[in-house]
């Protein structure tokens, strides 16, 4: 987009671009800055008026509490649970949706192709619409308050979503590369494993990343389905810094920083795949 170069407004454009770049950076950094400051400063300084942007006393007390203290016990369990649920739910839905996506992409029967929309329709379901029926079902099989139960529930909304992403991606892989193997008589599973998966790696990484982030973020199901240390996830643990009459903003901020780090690191590291996977995949509908 070098549209203005031939207008000869290079300097203007230069100023224009940098102005907005700085604005963009500031708008992203500022709330994060405040989150981190809130996790380090005394509450007294945070509620002062006029507000000092760099509080006088900074301490790591809350982080010590989270990682080693009494108050942090639930939080540490929640961290473990969140990791396990994210991996379990994403792992299970990944396998299911890869198979489904391959089937929908390579054998789009007349009626079957509509199944993608049926699946996507389930993704649109607001959680509250099925929450109680689900709770009763989980109770019957003794999966309330377990990471297994939560993972199964998460799979239900991850599977359609990942199927959609992966189907789009597999669509973009030319069929020809499988033909040789088909002639050789290799089974479809083998073709999927040996030929399709290696080519689909960017799409797979994007799908897995999205799955992990979505389960990491989920709050409502976790709030209702879990309450013990054995099963609560991070969003619930953070919400629990709300006491009966008070909210511990400092702890919430510290917990928030810790909870935000894993997905942020993942997103930054795997960003390239995310873009590749999402664009050559899902954009085809």
């Amino acid at each position: 987009m070098r549209r203005s170069s031939y207008h000869g407004h290079k300097i203007l454009k230069f100023i224009f671009i940098y102005f907005f770049v700085i604005l963009l950076i500031a708008s992203i950094i500022a709330p994060f800055f405040w989150l981190i400051v809130s996790s380090l400063a005394n509450l007294k300084d945070l509620v002062a008026k006029p507000l000092h942007w760099i509080p006088r006393h900074l301490n790591l007390e809350r982080y010590r509490e989270i990682f080693f203290g009494q108050v942090g016990i639930s939080f540490r369990y929640a961290l473990r649970n969140s990791i396990l649920v994210a991996l379990l739910a994403t792992g299970a839905s990944f396998v299911l949706s890869l198979l489904a996506a391959y089937s929908l992409s390579r054998f789009p029967g007349k009626y079957r192709s509509n199944l993608l929309y049926v699946m996507l329709a389930t993704y649109m379901m607001p959680p509250v619409a099925i929450l109680l029926s689900l709770y009763i079902m989980l109770r019957q099989v003794h999966l309330v308050n377990t990471i297994w139960g939560l993972s199964i529930v998460y799979s239900s909304f991850l599977t359609p979503f990942l199927t959609w992403i992966l189907k789009g991606f597999i669509d973009s892989i030319p069929k020809e590369i499988e033909e040789a193997a088909t002639i050789d008589g290799a089974s479809r599973i083998l073709i999927l494993l040996r030929i399709v998966i290696p080519v689909a790696v960017p799409g797979i990484i994007a799908a897995v990343l999205l799955g992990v982030l979505m389960s990491w973020d989920e709050f409502f199901y976790a709030l209702i389905f879990t309450s013990t240390n054995q099963a609560i996830t991070l969003p619930v643990a953070i919400a629990q810094f709300t006491k009966r009459h008070s909210i511990d903003y400092g702890m919430m901020a510290a917990g928030g920083v810790v909870a935000a780090l894993p997905p942020i690191i993942l997103a930054v590291l795997l960003q390239r795949y995310l873009i590749q996977g999402l664009t050559s995949g899902s954009v085809k509908g």
Binding site: Y135, R139, N145, L223, I224
Partner: peptide, 23 residues
């Protein structure tokens, strides 16, 4: 005794959800 702790906001819903499922 096995103990469960929730936030105050979640307490009512928790009791209701547990009761709704019968145990």
């Amino acid at each position: 005794i096995s103990l469960e702790f929730v936030s105050y906001e979640a307490l009512h819903d928790k009791i209701i959800a547990a009761a709704a499922s019968g145990s």
